[in-house]
């Protein structure tokens, strides 16, 4: 892996790590939501410090350039995470819709009881 990429990877993963931790401290993001990002940045730190890991694994699966493998891993993680987010968003929206609808019906029920 080229040295410049290793340095870039190291700096950006450290920065993103700091960013995530700061957001967590400010309670802008839930604790368990940060685990993904922290793990990911830790993985990048690891890869930039010990590029041999990337080289070995790339050799093992038959990818010529370790850089490509690093990209592949990043894309894979991001797509997975993106899908999970979409899933969670749908869940949330369904529950929200149900809540608002049920609350509206309940308010109407209570009004009827008051009237009668």
């Amino acid at each position: 892996m080229p040295l410049i990429l290793r340095i870039l990877l190291l700096i950006s993963s450290l920065l993103s790590f700091i960013f995530v931790v700061r957001r967590l401290r400010k309670s802008e993001v839930q604790l368990y939501d940060t685990t993904f990002w922290i793990t990911l940045s830790a993985l990048f730190v690891l890869l930039s410090l010990f590029p041999q890991i990337a080289i070995k694994v790339a050799e093992l699966i038959g990818i010529q350039s370790p850089v490509n493998m690093v990209f592949l891993i990043i894309i894979f993680f991001l797509l997975g995470h993106c899908f999970l987010q979409s899933l969670r968003f749908s869940h949330l929206e369904n529950r929200f819709n149900k809540l608002v609808g049920d609350e509206a019906l309940k308010a109407e029920d209570e009004k009827q009881e008051e009237d009668s």
């Binding site: 819709n97 608002v100 609808g101 609350e103 509206a104 019906l105 109407e108």
Partner: peptide, 19 residues
């Protein structure tokens, strides 16, 4: 029946049907 926030046509009809 009043939704406190705007949910769109589909949810409004669903609330009506539940009623």
């Amino acid at each position: 029946v009043r939704h406190r926030v705007n949910l769109g046509l589909a949810e409004a009809v669903r609330t009506g049907m539940k009623y």
